[in-house]
Design a protein around this nucleic acid. Sequence first.
DNA 1: CCACTAAATATAGGCAGAAGATTTACCGTC
DNA 2: GACGGTAAATCTTCTGCCTATATTTAGTGG
Lengths: 406, 406
Amino acid sequence: MTAHVVLNSPHLVRRANAAALLRAVWDARPFTANDAMAATGLTRSTALALCDHLADLGWLSELADARAAGEYSKGRPARRYAFRPTAGLLLGLDAGQNRITAVVADLRAQVLAHGVARLPRDNLDPQIRRDGVGRAVHLALTEAGAHEDDVLAAVVGVPAPTDRHGASPPGEDGYWARMNPDLRSVLSRPGRTVLVENDANLAAVAEGAVGAGAGSTAFAALLAGERLGAGLMVDGHLLRGRAGGAGELRMLELVEGVGSSLGLGPVARELLRQAADAGRLAADSPLLGEDGVQELFRAAAAHDPVAVEVVEALTDRLARVCAAIATLLDLELVVVAGAIATALGPLTAAVTARLERYAHPPLPVVVASRLGADAVGVGAVHRALELVRADPLGFDVAGRGHAPAH
Amino acid sequence: MTAHVVLNSPHLVRRANAAALLRAVWDARPFTANDAMAATGLTRSTALALCDHLADLGWLSELADARAAGEYSKGRPARRYAFRPTAGLLLGLDAGQNRITAVVADLRAQVLAHGVARLPRDNLDPQIRRDGVGRAVHLALTEAGAHEDDVLAAVVGVPAPTDRHGASPPGEDGYWARMNPDLRSVLSRPGRTVLVENDANLAAVAEGAVGAGAGSTAFAALLAGERLGAGLMVDGHLLRGRAGGAGELRMLELVEGVGSSLGLGPVARELLRQAADAGRLAADSPLLGEDGVQELFRAAAAHDPVAVEVVEALTDRLARVCAAIATLLDLELVVVAGAIATALGPLTAAVTARLERYAHPPLPVVVASRLGADAVGVGAVHRALELVRADPLGFDVAGRGHAPAH
DNA sequence: CCACTAAATATAGGCAGAAGATTTACCGTC
DNA sequence: GACGGTAAATCTTCTGCCTATATTTAGTGG
């Protein structure tokens, strides 16, 4: 006979109702008691009492102006309230291998400021990463004119699997553990919720919230950097697995015509090197340079035979990858994200077309992310928002620039 | 401003608490108010009032006997209640291609009776399947001495993907649609909840509830019949996907060394046929007969070279399949289920051992199901149980052999 | 200045649950 | 067979949340 949650106090009822009202009003324009009544089904007196209560707590502001918005004008003017998106702040971080980005956003996930900390090229010292996180956060908060105490929830994306508690397994040669040197504790503050999450998972959250996956219930965000990784959203849930390893794509080693989880950049470089070795590419070709991938698509568009061949190989590879993942999970969409995504725009249509060779209808669609390099940070902010929205009254908001109505 | 659920009436609070209490005592021995208080945190008066209420509704019986169980004997004897597992019945069906099985169970998922309807060998007429369902249900209910009205929830497993509403896409050549000819409507009755679900998914539910997956939060049930299909349980959720196709294994066509989603039986038959064609197997070998697969393992155990070779090929194939699925989703376990499962017991250890060739630590474990041919039906019953437990007070139970206390 | 209107406020009542006093139904024991 | 002791049931009182239904209020337009 295990314990079960019950409402053993009227106070709990009120709290649940207040949270429901707050969620209903979160994204709304200024609203009146009538709106609150419609959204919750509560009586006017109760709705008003809850609004006043939420205003006392700092979640809502009562707008002095009664019928300012000229919304009609018979009868006694309605009291108007508005959700205060700056009642608290959200912090989203992308703790990449060489760079840490912090994003400060309000309670509607509107980005207010950024902060970036570059890390030394070959660093694996945990303290350097931890310091970098602190630096990026400080920069972002300063730019936003905000204070550490204003942050209700912080979420960090790391290039490693993470379990429910934000811990990463060591991984081979301890790479994962080095990427996630207990970043949770760096960000922890009293009254603040902190979560460490896999970066591809956060990219998926971002795509689902404001990207190509909005409205979709089954899709993947394919983070295409040096190695491929995926965030899997199925039935509206982010998949985690035993130890957070869901979406790790080592299974691609078993997929015919793919053979590894290498990202598109490394594969392109390798193919171009092979062409050079075979004498089909001049040793000083721009395709072999730093910006090889950008050059590659330009050259393919200009019908350079080697470039066309390589791009076709990449298309085929990506189609196989997407087919394998999407078929097993019945996804309707694969969003290719990461730094390389913008360059891949032209590729995705070709990939989608090629899917019919490797998958069966209904075929998924492959698109490039429009969120750019910020995908992980934005996803982190949205994840933080979910945490706050899930139980807003669990967060203390009173401090922030608000004088409670006594 | 979308509508949100609120507790706008004391009645709702009471209902929620009653449901919580009921869930807490669902699997308990006879219990007293003290037990109920401990499980819910409510006061004695409230707990007793709720128990009486639930007894009135027919969910609990009050045991006349006060301190019969000799559980101590100072003070005023406690009133004792017990959950009534027969307050309503659950119906689980396995609507296979050639055979329909119905299982009747009580509210603790204890199986009370079976009913089987065999279908003509080559039938695809929807009406024949629908009639078969009715026949199997009638047989099972009769054996249980029960009536249609006693069934609170029914769940059917079909060999086809199903969406949230129990509908199946037509599939190529309409096979799926024929396997699921609106079975929902056949079982529908006023006051009864009906659900149509993919059979592999139900096998996964069964394994998670009473099979090898009990306690595991990320595992797959691999239904190994003529074709492979999987039910995927990740983070405690059954994966569905866009149209219920999650766990369809056509992606195996892309996996090296696998190449198709054919089950082990067909592959074994094909390998044996090839051996026979090559003259390595006598044309009258028992391995080529009806019970080939059973024979195969026996022969391999006796070091028959052809049999050993085929079993090794099957081991390798299964290891690749499990590695691909388990790696993508970070599963800790793959349970091989289906009619063939019992024969596969000896194979699974070899498969688990071979996984290290195709996957990386932490490696999943592969085991054979111990649930036998009933896995789908049992899973269906457990799924039905979930439906009832989720909101027990939404079901009317009063009728069944119980005189409410006026 | 007066109806009219729509919203805010005030008042009363129902109901769930807590808290604590009291009663009850047993057990020993003398 | 009356007498404490005990643990649970029951009774009484109280608080808080919500509904329902007046009543008041702050405006508009004639």
